[in-house]
């Protein structure tokens, strides 16, 4: 058995919806329903499904932004919801996230270097000089220059901002990168550049990736394995080539057909 980095075991998450009537209990939405999967070191796992299928809820739970209602999430063998706040903060350097909209996740009034250094400062282990060196290093790793760190987010194009978000995510040398629709807002040519960058970083740094997307063609080009989610349930899972080549469910077939057009 290969080295397991992340194990998601029977995880469910429910949300209470607003009350529809005064004397009836509030309806409950099951965002994730009994999901289980593993992620091995160095692997990329794609999670596909349409909006509302529970992709982002799953990501939030893996990132320990939200606890699951039932089930466990083990990262490097540790239950991330059993840790105390200090332990969790330290562990956070090992899993980082890249969001869809880099403009929303970068502070417009801070320099890019400040934003990239933020996770390192939050962990509180690195000296300011060390952080400066590391920021310059990651900027170059994502195809920007150390000088770009002095600029502000609005001075960059969408693709470059996504590079900055990736630089910030890899600054703490994580073992796992969670990318939530990280290339969805980009034009095709820029999207291809960012996908290539992610593939390179993965090879160079030995990263594992949880790659969330509604675009099957994108998932097909970057993921080793894939999970298809519908209404919070895992419909199918397996090697990307196999699942997309011989989809077992009608829903997966419709997604494949949509991606082929």
């Amino acid at each position: 058995m290969a080295d397991k980095l992340l194990a998601v075991e029977n995880v469910s998450r429910h949300y209470k919806l607003p009350k529809q009537a005064l004397f009836r209990p509030a309806p409950v939405l099951t965002a994730v329903d009994q999901a289980s999967f593993d992620l091995e070191r160095g692997q990329t796992l794609g999670i596909v499904g349409e909006s509302g299928s529970g992709k982002s809820t799953l990501a939030k739970m893996v990132m320990a932004f939200e606890p699951p209602d039932t089930g466990r999430i083990l990262f490097q063998g540790q239950d991330i919801n059993a840790l105390d706040a200090g332990e969790l903060r330290l562990l956070r350097q090992d899993f980082q996230m890249v969001f869809q909209d880099p403009f929303g996740s970068l502070d417009p009034r801070r320099t890019v270097a400040w934003s990239i250094g933020e996770p390192m400062r939050a962990i509180g282990r690195a000296a300011p000089a060390e952080i400066r060196i590391r920021v310059a290093e990651v900027l170059e790793q994502v195809g920007l220059t150390a000088k770009d760190g002095l600029k502000f987010p609005h001075e960059f194009s969408g693709g470059q901002r996504q590079r900055i978000a990736i630089a910030r995510a890899i600054s703490t040398r994580p073992a796992l990168l969670v990318a939530d629709e990280a290339v969805s807002a980009l034009d095709v040519s820029v999207q291809a550049q960012i996908l290539n960058l992610l593939m390179d970083l993965q090879a160079d740094l030995g990263l594992s990736m949880l790659f969330i997307s509604h675009d099957l063609a994108v998932v097909a080009s970057i993921c080793d394995k894939v999970i298809v989610l519908q209404k919070g349930r895992i419909l199918e899972a397996g090697d990307t080539g196999h699942v997309l080549g011989n989809p077992a469910h009608e829903y997966t077939r419709s997604l494949v057909a949509a991606a082929r057009m």
């Binding site: 194009s157 095709v188 291809a192 675009d215 063609a217 970057i222 080549g245």
Partner: peptide, 27 residues
Amino acid sequence: KGLLGARPRIEQAAGKRRHLPTIPGSV
């Protein structure tokens, strides 16, 4: 040609993790 080439294609890729052709730079 560049736009068409940069498009990820489900039938070709299928989990092979191969680099996509790109158009250098941005608009």
